[in-house]
């Protein structure tokens, strides 16, 4: 238990260092934009592909239930609302954790154990500014961009599957969307995506940056990054669900 709190303390200090560096250093915008586009481009195809089929799977499941009550006219709204509020942010953050998060942890871990980070420091550069800031904010911003894209594709995918498999036309599908989704639904989706993005970025950067012990150490860092990220996202999902319910009065 004490090890857990020790680790939590170190993580908090690391997080504080990121904000301190952001607020006290200049010329950070360009590397952050470069990293955001790199992460977005690297993950776009995966998110689009998964988003399309996640939307499809969800629509088939909802249809199976709604058909029993002859309520298929609500399929579009129910499906879109679930995608924006819950499934979309969760799936995209899991994808980001698996793809970008693991890559970041491995890259930083390798740099740490091969003394590249020490060398950067010795050459008069703050490694938090040079390595962590662009990666951290790159992942957070990319998660928002990928969420927007992923959600759009999954709604299109849902519509396609609903038309092909459930006997609804696209207009019928779209008609019920405004009844179930409004601005608070979108806000809750984006808030979640941002929080999960912070978790993926923070945990993976921290695990990589603090890796020790050669190749095995890098392996351990990547494993820990994957486990903790998914664990914290699930916990955050529960907590944000309660928050959003209280703040926005929305059923979460």
């Amino acid at each position: 238990m004490s090890a857990f709190f020790f680790e939590l303390g170190r993580f908090s200090l690391f997080f504080r260092e990121i904000w301190h560096t952001l607020l006290n250093t200049k010329h950070n915008l360009r590397p952050i934009i470069a990293q955001t586009s790199e992460v977005t481009i690297r993950s776009l195809s995966t998110v689009v592909f998964s988003g399309f089929f996640v939307g499809g799977i969800l629509v088939v499941q909802f249809n199976a239930v709604l058909a029993q009550y002859d309520a298929q006219i609500f399929l579009g709204g129910l499906n879109t609302s679930a995608l924006i509020r819950e499934v979309g942010p969760l799936i995209i953050s899991f994808l980001l954790a698996g793809k970008v998060g693991a890559f970041t942890a491995a890259e930083l871990g390798t740099m740490r154990v091969t003394e590249q980070i020490d060398a950067i420091e010795c050459l008069g550069t703050n490694p938090i500014q040079y390595l962590i800031l662009p990666r951290f904010f790159g992942i957070v911003l990319a998660s928002m961009i990928l969420l927007s894209t992923g959600l759009l594709v999954s709604v299109i995918g849902s519509m396609g599957f609903a038309t092909a498999l459930c006997g609804l036309n696209p207009l019928q599908f779209a008609q019920s969307i405004p009844r179930f989704t409004d601005i608070t639904t979108l806000l809750s989706g984006f808030l979640r995506a941002a929080i999960y993005g912070v978790i993926v970025a923070g945990v993976c950067c921290y695990q990589g940056y603090t890796a020790t012990g050669g190749a095995k150490g890098v392996g351990r860092a990547v494993t820990r990054a994957a486990i903790y990220t998914n664990l914290y996202i699930v916990i955050a999902n529960y907590i944000t669900g309660l928050w959003i319910h209280l703040l926005l009065g929305e059923s979460s």
Partner: peptide, 8 residues
């Protein structure tokens, strides 16, 4: 350093 520590 012990490793070349060049930035890849």
């Amino acid at each position: 350093f012990q490793h070349p520590a060049l930035l890849d």
